[in-house]
Simulated scan of single mutants.
Amino acid sequence: MPSMYPHAKGILHALKDKGIDVAVASRSPTPDIANTFLQKLSIDSIFVAKEIFSSWTHKTDHFQRIHSRTVVPFNSMLFFDDEDRNSR
């Protein structure tokens, strides 16, 4: 069963309540499992865009798709990543 840090869900809901759009972007070899985890964590409805797909393309593809869906300017997006090659 997937789990989150204790305050993570509350933070996500607080962002949504404040009108701050949140999206998720992931290059996952198993996008169906990633989406199932979001559902099991009861947070899938928080995201205005979910770009989860199996690909080895550059992360900018995710941003292009999120921008197309939300019209949020790139300079207004904040990006967190746990993959070293994306944080250089």
Rank of each mutant, 00 (worst) to 15 (best):
P2K: 00
S3M: 09
M4T: 11
M4Y: 05
Y5I: 12
P6W: 02
P6G: 00
H7R: 13
H7T: 13
H7Y: 13
H7Q: 12
H7G: 10
A8H: 06
A8S: 12
A8I: 02
A8V: 07
A8W: 01
K9Y: 07
K9E: 13
G10N: 13
I11K: 09
I11Q: 10
L12R: 10
H13G: 01
A14I: 00
A14F: 04
A14H: 14
L15A: 05
K16P: 13
D17Q: 06
K18Q: 11
K18L: 04
G19H: 07
G19P: 01
G19Y: 03
D21R: 02
D21Q: 06
D21E: 10
A23C: 14
A23W: 03
V24M: 08
A25M: 12
A25L: 15
R27F: 04
R27S: 11
S28K: 05
S28A: 05
P31T: 15
P31M: 15
D32A: 10
D32P: 06
D32R: 13
D32Q: 09
I33N: 02
I33T: 14
N35R: 07
T36N: 02
F37D: 04
F37H: 08
L38T: 10
Q39N: 13
Q39F: 08
K40Q: 15
K40H: 15
L41C: 11
L41E: 09
L41F: 08
S42V: 04
S42W: 05
I43S: 00
I43G: 00
D44H: 09
D44V: 07
D44N: 14
D44C: 10
S45P: 11
S45M: 10
I46W: 08
I46H: 05
I46D: 02
F47K: 08
F47G: 08
F47N: 07
E51G: 09
E51Y: 09
I52T: 12
I52R: 04
I52L: 11
F53Y: 11
S55W: 12
S55T: 10
S55V: 02
W56T: 12
W56H: 06
T57M: 03
H58T: 05
K59C: 08
T60P: 01
D61F: 01
D61P: 00
D61A: 02
D61L: 05
D61M: 05
F63K: 08
F63S: 07
Q64A: 10
I66C: 00
I66A: 04
I66P: 01
S68A: 08
T70I: 10
V71A: 14
V72R: 02
P73E: 01
P73G: 00
F74R: 14
F74E: 11
F74Y: 15
F74S: 13
N75D: 14
N75V: 07
M77E: 12
L78R: 15
L78Q: 10
F79V: 12
F79E: 05
F80D: 07
F80W: 08
D81R: 12
D81T: 08
D82Q: 02
D82C: 06
E83L: 04
E83K: 12
E83N: 11
D84Q: 13
D84I: 03
D84R: 08
R85F: 09
N86L: 06
